[in-house]
Amino acid sequence: MDWIFEPWPWYISGPLITLVMTLLLLMEKQFGMSSNLRTLCAICGAGERTSFFKFDWKAQRWNLIVVLGVMIGGYIGANFLTKKSAVIVDDDVASSLNELGFKSVNQSYLPEELFPIDVVADFKIVLLLIIGGLLVGFGTRYAGGCTSGHAISGLSNLQLPSLIAVIGFFIGGLTMVHFIFPIIF
């Protein structure tokens, strides 16, 4: 049973994600995580401001339960099913990250340079995280879905819009990693 404590290979993880999507479909639900962000807006009372958030968020409660499950799953996965959490990346990637100033590469799950314990101490990091979050939240709703909704569900259903969106994800991601990272780090 030792394998369970190791990082799971892609040919296990990928099919497991499909299984999650299939189960949700069979329960008449759609696999999409980003809708929850909209639901959270609605709960916070955003419906007062714009009609976009005026919908019956209570009908979306099942999805919030999925979110809760994902959080619990994250907790279990990290605390009970993992011995060494360090993510080991490709050698070239590790050295290029070192050059950018990321010293925690191959030593942890998330870069300490971006996710330190006392995050509020560093204004630049807080700002970067906020910008990252804003872009994700804005972009995902504009595109009508995120990785789970477009890349997994959408492509599985052979939807052209999802393919366009995924191409967009990569244009954005590549631009960030190759052109913007060297500037900000």
Binding site: G132, L135, G139, A143, G144, T147, S162, F169
Partner: peptide, 14 residues
């Protein structure tokens, strides 16, 4: 989809 995707991708990578 393209614009939204690009914006999302920027945030995803960051």
């Amino acid at each position: 989809y393209l614009l939204g995707g690009i914006i999302f991708g920027l945030g995803w990578a960051l």
